[in-house]
């Protein structure tokens, strides 16, 4: 059974896209208030470009966090720093 919410036809173009994308950035970066998040989610439920923009930005951010290789600092560098510090 299709819920009332699902029956809502989403917009296929966004007249406030620049503003919405700024809000998307704030949300994915954890910089938006709860009020801003709730307002955007309501909007996103009705606007396909906003939903797609949000999903893409979230995906890119997660990709940067998870897939960039994290290098381990060489132990020789730590030893060298400690040695120089102790001789100061």
């Amino acid at each position: 059974m299709v819920s009332e919410a699902e029956k809502i036809q989403k917009k296929t173009s966004c007249e406030h896209q620049a503003e919405c994308m700024k809000m998307v950035q704030m949300i994915v970066d954890g910089q938006a208030s709860d009020e801003q998040i709730n307002a955007f989610k309501l909007n996103m439920n009705q606007c396909l470009p906003c939903e797609q923009g949000y999903e893409l930005e979230k995906c890119i951010k997660e990709t940067m966090q998870l897939r960039l290789e994290k290098k381990c600092v060489p132990s020789s560098l730590i030893d060298c720093i400690k040695q120089k510090i102790s001789s100061l």
Binding site: Q17, A18, E55, L56, C59, T63, R67, E69
Partner: peptide, 17 residues
């Protein structure tokens, strides 16, 4: 400015590190 880049979530997910 209202710039958008056409890029699929799936394409990003398929890229390696």
């Amino acid at each position: 400015t209202n710039q958008t880049v056409d890029l699929r979530v799936e394409s990003v997910q398929d890229l390696i590190g």
